[in-house]
Design a protein around this nucleic acid. Structure first.
Lengths: 277, 277
DNA sequence: ACTTTTTTTGTAGTTGTACTACATTTCTGC
DNA sequence: GCAGAAATGTAGTACAACTACAAAAAAAGT
């Protein structure tokens, strides 16, 4: 939220910017202020404050205050959440954790529950599940495989374009492909998904909304991540993807019912032997 | 906040309890409701709603809404955050995300900054970095490798006990092993770490505090995760591990300075070619 | 350089919301 | 069953949020 204000500030008019400065200077104070109080502090008129709220995409002042309060509560305080070269380790920790938390909360707020439900339906009744992804999304695919195979579903993960294109060709109706690509624009992935669809398989995408991959899928789940494609490495994105996979896995697990729980217990005890007491 | 309402509910009067039920049932809706709307839904009069707010120690309805909004944003919203078999998809989403966020915030609060700094020191000056982990932690190891190799450091990840025990034997002083095990009790991993230490390599552990693995390492970073070893699959644990790896990677990147940033830009443009416009 | 048009900002007024004082109802103890 | 106390609702008030409009400032055109 504070980031958003910072971002939109240059596009604002002079007097609205005064309001923005006031909010950024002492966000905590603002959430208990009335319009009049904030207007006085920013030395502008009351409607200007309202216009400022509207410029941020809020319904009005109340809505603005609510959103601000929420964003402050999550501890995500840094206006520039991008790490700077001269940050102390303590700050780096805070910023990285905060940006992960912020991405998660944002995604939770705007996640398409209907799509989740559709995806769970498909996965729960799948004969076989294949996860495709490259690079960072490849890790997510591996993680998903690791989670789903415990649910006693035949599952594989492919992170190689040639391999998944071949595998996609021999899919059959009843099989499900989960295609993971943060941008949703990976050429190789899209090609394999098209092959999979032609073979009659269902497709679940974890990809940016409106992307080519999203359009191709029977159910698309889109993580909400910052636009600032950071100079460093995509990070929060994978975290969100992983949690989405968690949701799907648990959703499927719940469908499978109690006998699955028993089976999970069994894998757990087997694992114990690999550990020290 | 919701917990507080739950706690205070028995001490409330009958009609105030109706309001409490309404708030607990759909907290999200309430934050955008007016007094009149909430009163109508709870089938009580408007002053009753205000009395309800006062009973919770709030100044009034606005204050109540603000606090509620904050507590909802900060994560752990469900009184029992463990997923139940009869949860609706919407609830599953909320609970899974919430538990991830809660784990992250908890870890951020109690992370050992000194250990982080020591780990970054070791990694930044490493000649070669090897990541070891099994199962879910194996995914974390792969992810770490994927992140660190972009920092132009010779890096590998091993998720096989035989392989990493062999590799550990041929390490030299100046090399760094990052051992990832959530419990910190994996026999195979501990064995390889001992071999690595004998060979003169430095060891960074991402493991539970006080565990055997933690004792063996030069720097140990411990995630804070729920004790409730869920019936289902370990989930939040990996998320926290991944974010810790993010912190380490960024810490190292910052040490490396601006020439690294240029190199990262290069990998980015190369990747573009694999994508659709 | 002056006028016209557009944009930006403030003023005054309206609506609706939160809150208060008081009346009515409901419960409890004698 | 009645008196007192507690709880709930009704009616009214004050104030906050928002709107319509007008004045001022800036931008564009002549």
């Amino acid at each position: 939220m504070l980031n958003q204000i910072e971002t939109l500030k240059p596009r604002m008019r002079k007097s609205e910017r005064k309001v923005a400065d006031c909010v950024l200077a002492q966000p905590d104070t603002v959430i208990s202020d009335s319009i009049a109080a904030l207007a006085a502090r920013a030395q502008v008129s009351e409607p200007t404050v309202i216009r400022f709220c509207r410029a941020l995409g809020c319904d009005g002042y109340q809505d603005f205050k609510l959103r601000l309060a929420q964003s402050l509560a999550s501890g995500v305080r840094f206006v520039h959440s991008v790490v700077a070269p001269d940050d102390a380790p303590r700050q780096v920790v805070a910023k990285v954790f905060d940006s992960a938390v912020a991405s998660l909360l944002r995604t939770r707020a705007q996640l398409d529950t209907a799509a989740i439900e559709r995806a769970i339906d498909l996965l729960a009744s799948a004969r076989k599940i294949e996860f495709y992804g490259h690079g960072a999304s490849g890790i997510v695919a591996l993680d998903a495989q690791h989670k789903f195979f415990r649910l006693a579903v035949p599952t594989v993960a492919y992170i190689d374009a040639h391999v998944h294109s071949m595998s996609a060709a021999i899919l059959e109706p009843g099989d499900v492909v989960v295609a993971i690509s943060h941008s949703g624009r990976s050429k190789d992935l899209i090609a394999s998904v098209q092959v999979a669809r032609a073979a009659g398989a269902a497709v679940v995408a974890i990809a940016a909304a409106g992307s080519p991959l999203a359009e191709l899928a029977h159910a698309t789940i889109s993580p909400a991540v910052d636009e600032d494609t950071s100079t460093y490495i995509p990070m929060s994105s994978r975290i969100v993807d992983l949690v989405i996979v968690d949701v799907l896995a648990i959703g499927v697990a719940l469908r499978r019912g109690p006998d699955l729980v028993r089976r999970l217990e069994k894998t757990k005890t087997t694992l114990m032997e690999k550990h020290l007491s």
